[in-house]
Nucleic acid binder design. Structure first.
Length: 230
DNA sequence: CCCTGATTCGC
DNA sequence: GCGAATCAGG
């Protein structure tokens, strides 16, 4: 398989949309996950929440420079000496202690830390850059977090009258209709709910009310991965 | 072990 | 330019 214009466009869209390399490779077909990553890098796209990056540039060096320079092997792989970044602001310590039982005491009577403070109580920053808040601070008026990954997919020339992958822009609903790879796969294409990537109807699907832990609704219909949703 | 992305390097 | 092999972290 070669990297045609369309395949590259799909790769870009999906990569930027947050799809994993595996998913992209799967959709493109005929290429491996590594191929996708390699291509993505060659295209200049990169970064994105990668699991292997939590390492802070620290003086960590292993002196094993000894005797066996095996031919096909650990060539010195100094993982990309990045420009010395200023130490990232450490997230404030979380209160929840691991597997701690919530203690049967119903009247926890634990006063919330200074309600008078109007600080947003940001606890940490999620992978997408959105802010997480403490469990008691759910007054957030608008739901920022996307449901899962936005995974646009393969363009199909046969559906010119439908909204194809390449037709996506900020004004049309990006909700996928059908499954990638199917001949009639397309996107909703309706007018977006301003400020959201989906139309009003699909916003209703994408953004579920955040219920308290324990009383959560298990299977929200998702654009990809789940059972067919049309 | 599974997953992830990053990097290297022979082709 | 391509991608398997490998690395490294979750």
């Amino acid at each position: 398989m070669s990297w045609t214009d369309e395949r590259i466009a799909t790769l870009k869209k999906m990569w930027e949309g947050g799809a994993t390399a595996s998913q992209i490779a799967d959709e493109l077909g005929g290429v491996s996950r590594n191929a996708v990553i390699g291509k993505a890098h060659r295209l200049g796209l990169k970064s994105r929440p990668s699991p292997v990056k939590a390492n802070e540039p620290k003086k960590v060096e292993k002196k094993a420079a000894a005797p066996s320079p095996a031919p096909r092997k650990p060539a010195p792989r100094p993982a990309a000496a990045k420009a010395p970044e200023p130490a990232a602001p450490p997230a404030p310590p979380r209160q929840t202690g691991g597997g701690e039982r919530a203690s049967a005491a119903p009247s926890s009577s634990q006063p919330l830390p200074n309600p008078s403070s109007n600080l947003p109580k940001i606890v940490s920053v999620g992978p997408g850059g959105f802010l997480r808040q403490g469990p008691g601070d759910q007054q957030a008026p608008i739901p920022p977090a996307p449901p899962r990954r936005l995974v646009p997919a393969k363009p199909s020339p046969e559906i010119a009258d439908k909204t194809s992958l390449l037709d996506l822009n900020d004004k049309v609903c990006r909700w996928p209709m059908g499954h990638p790879g199917e001949p009639d796969f397309h996107f909703c294409g309706g007018p977006v709910n301003p400020g959201f990537p989906y139309c009003v109807e699909h916003c209703g699907r994408a953004y579920q009310a955040q219920l308290p832990r324990g009383a959560r609704r298990p299977p929200p219909p998702l654009p990809f991965g789940g059972p067919r949703v049309r």
